[in-house]
Design a protein around this nucleic acid. Structure first.
Ligand SMILES: [Mn+2]
Ligand SMILES: [Mn+2]
Ligand SMILES: [Zn+2]
Ligand SMILES: [Zn+2]
Lengths: 134, 134
DNA sequence: GTGGTATTGATAATTATTCTCCATAGATAA
DNA sequence: TTATCTATGGAGAATAATTATCAATACCAC
């Protein structure tokens, strides 16, 4: 947790701990602005730039995964590795879409068919979630 | 081609034809800035805003597919429907990753397991392409 | 505790994309 | 062909998420 950070010459600060804790508790996929609002409850003088810098450090450290959405990145601190996301066009909810079979198979196939070495992936499905279909 | 546009009250202009033709010929995945440079050869006074407006119209008309990349959207006029893309971290090349099995299976699985009605998808794989592995 | 350095906060800068508004050009019918 | 109506184009301003700058501060090894 903090060992990896320090190996890279980074420090574990109260801000970074708090941000990780919020993500672990919320189980959601917040964006920078939402994390900013949450963190302001504990650190009223925190800056939005600090949120971005913290997210960058934690991302490079492999502790959060960035969901690369159009002009509004969201973050996952619970599953800090590539996995599919289902994004509802009605309510905006972002649902984890892991436990999907064939994912490894697709990676394998791309690797072989195109001789492409996959390092990362962004798998986004847009549509209507269960709740919004009523 | 122009029938669909006119049904929606849109007009087929020389700009729109030229943009579609450039995409069809290039077989690539240009972004707005690259299309702007190309189109300026034919229309020296064209504006970048016109590129964006044209791309929006053609996208809504189902004639181009937008690849939703982080702060730099690219467009596909040859396969104007969702399909995977392989993006090289070294040379920046964007490779079509269709003809991949299991894609329909994954869509099916998400539909069933999460009861999620898929309307669109962005499947991006980042890594190193064949040419850049030497 | 002290000192060196990473981090923070305030704010400016960046950059892709969108908006505004008037002039212009495409379609349609006379 | 010509008139008319309206979508489109061009120029530049506006927007908004993200990044850069830099002096003050907090972390941590000693
Ligand atoms: Mn997730
Ligand atoms: Mn493509
Ligand atoms: Zn929903
Ligand atoms: Zn390459």
């Amino acid at each position: 947790m903090l060992t990896k950070l320090q190996d890279r010459g980074s420090r574990m600060t109260s801000h970074r701990l708090a941000l990780l804790r919020i993500m672990a508790v919320s189980e959601g996929h917040p964006n920078a602005a939402q994390l900013y609002e949450k963190l302001r409850e504990q650190f009223p003088t925190i800056s939005l730039a600090t949120i971005y810098k913290t997210l960058l450090v934690l991302k490079e450290d492999g502790q959060v995964f960035e969901i690369d959405m159009h002009n509004d990145s969201h973050y996952d601190g619970n599953k800090p590795y590539p996995h599919p996301h289902l994004i509802c066009n009605k309510c905006g909810d972002i649902i984890d879409g892991d436990d999907v079979s064939f994912l490894d198979a697709i990676g394998q196939e791309i690797q072989e068919k195109y001789n492409f070495q996959i390092a990362q992936s962004q798998l986004l499905f847009y549509g209507v979630c269960q709740n919004c279909q009523s």
